[in-house]
Amino acid sequence: MRRAAGVLWAMLLSGPAAAARQSVIHPAGEDAALVAGLFWWLLGGAVLLWLLMNGLFLYLTRLNPVPLSRRLAEMLIIGGGVLLPTVVLAVLLGVTLQKIPMHMRPGDGLRVHVTGEEWWWRVEYWPEGADAPIVSANEIRLPAGQRTDVTLGSARVIHSFWIPALGGKLDMFPGRETRMSLLPQIPGTYRGQCAEFCGLSHALMAFEAVVMEPADFQAWLTAQAAPALPPADARAARGRAVFFAEGCGGCHAIRGTAATAGAGPDLTHLGSRTTLASATLPMTEAALAEWIADPESAKPGALMPGYGHLSGAELGDLAHYLKGLR
């Protein structure tokens, strides 16, 4: 039931109403516009060629079916069958070869390093000159109007990083770094998705990409760099005690506390993210509690163990504390 709800939610996110959020033909950045431009030009050219070929075919077989002179026939075969494709393909090759390096033009300073995990995204922001990254997960925020370097890696299997509305896709390999850069132009929330089959929950390995005005982005990044907020109320304090008593800190970091582990997503500002479990569930206390009790019902094969043995009150307190980590 919970899994069905999660899938339904994911479908709603990617349904027709939200099509523009994850669409190659609704570019919201320079790189995606380049891809979309190529697509439209190629589509137009293909339609034109199709019309020409079928028009010629119709003319020669139905409208004017007379024998051609040997000379004209040879011209058609050599010109249309050899010369024309050679010229068209050579031009296309030249144009695209020249555009390929554009997806890795150097950025304006900020670098975002994304690591594909099973099945979530480890995200590190490296502002220009930084010694250590600002760590987050399962959500990528980018400043509009600036080119950001994106470096990609993977923990164990091959994934592929793709935000259709912002740029092309690029594979993520274990033990090897690949790089691209993105220049988003229209602030808004877009959706990214792993584009290389990577295991049981590949289809549920998504994320939201939020494009912000540069000033908003700076404010957000500064907030992300700060340590976690202390519990705001007694219930959150009880939730914090559950977090530390039950071993959650064995995998998760909450900066500013004793929890510094890096096996699972960093939770320092979990409550400020728009989705839970890499865009599989909404970021609500109820969804958090359900996720912690049984992660595999929302995400088959998830490496996080279930804590269904905690009482409803403990799960609720824990979810309340985590949601408060804004």
Binding site: A241, F244, A245, E246, G247, C248, G249, G250, C251, A258, A259, T260, A261, A263
Partner: peptide, 19 residues
């Protein structure tokens, strides 16, 4: 070693005594 310590110590916060 956090993965072990968070449940089995040494750990600076109180832990579930069933670990």
């Amino acid at each position: 070693t956090e993965a072990c310590r968070a449940c089995h110590g040494p750990w600076p916060e109180p832990r579930n005594p069933l670990f």
